[in-house]
């Protein structure tokens, strides 16, 4: 059953370079064509690659809301990276929030250089589970590597979001939007990625 709320506040988070902004637009356009008012805010600071990036998407049947989600008011978090999902829960989480997240880490620069510790996969999953009403975990990066294209993690996660049934969005809505943004030669791979994501619901 889809989660409810008006406005419904969706957060899409990840790391620079993971294609977070692309899928926010994809989801936003698909929702708008279904008749919702949609506003998306993007927070990416100075990051080209490697910094934390998140989009806030607010949908409503009544009006266009502002782009910022108040603290503790997320309904749904779509995470392309588990530490970023937890970071969003820290600020926007509440007992009713649903998370759909990739479990594969992108290590921080501090962790890579051994200056601090990146939490273990189990620590992250445990924390995300405790702070959500429902948490769907998907190892999207491994699926993407199997498809030979690490770049499609974002589309796999859109698939996982549809598969979770938490958002009023059908596969066909997303496929139609994908045709607007990907050149024909890239469609096959991305449709496959979407399908793999849908099948991987928790």
């Amino acid at each position: 059953m889809a989660i409810s709320g008006d406005p419904l506040n969706l957060i899409i988070c990840g790391v620079g370079g993971q294609g977070n902004i692309l899928i926010s637009g994809l989801i936003g356009n698909a929702l708008m064509k279904k008749g919702y008012h949609v506003t998306i805010g993007e927070t990416f600071g100075a990051s080209q690659r490697g910094g934390a990036v998140f989009s806030t998407l607010r949908m409503s049947t009544k009006k266009s809301y502002g782009p910022l989600i108040p603290q503790g008011k997320a309904h749904l978090i779509l995470g392309l990276e588990p530490l970023e999902t937890l970071r969003m829960l820290q600020r926007y989480g509440n007992p009713g929030v649903v998370c759909v997240t990739n479990t594969h880490p992108v290590l921080t620069i501090g962790a890579l250089s051994q200056k601090e510790k990146y939490p273990s996969c189990n620590e992250l999953k445990g924390a995300i589970e405790k702070l959500s009403k429902l948490a769907c975990f998907v190892d999207a990066t491994s699926i993407a590597l199997k498809l030979g294209a690490p770049i499609v993690v974002n589309i796999i996660m859109v698939g996982a979001l549809i598969g979770s049934g938490q958002l009023a969005l059908e596969r066909v809505d997303v496929e139609n939007e994908m045709r607007n943004i990907f050149p024909p030669e890239r469609m096959k791979l991305n449709l496959r990625a979407l399908e793999m994501g849908i099948g991987r619901k928790a």
Partner: peptide, 28 residues
């Protein structure tokens, strides 16, 4: 209160110790 106190406490206890900064540096 943005959210109930028990949830806020869980955030402090569970999330805060794990969430490290994601610093930005030059691309590979």
């Amino acid at each position: 209160q943005a959210r109930e106190a028990s949830y806020e406490q869980m955030v402090q206890d569970i999330a805060k110790p794990l969430v490290i900064d994601r610093g930005m540096l030059w691309c590979p």
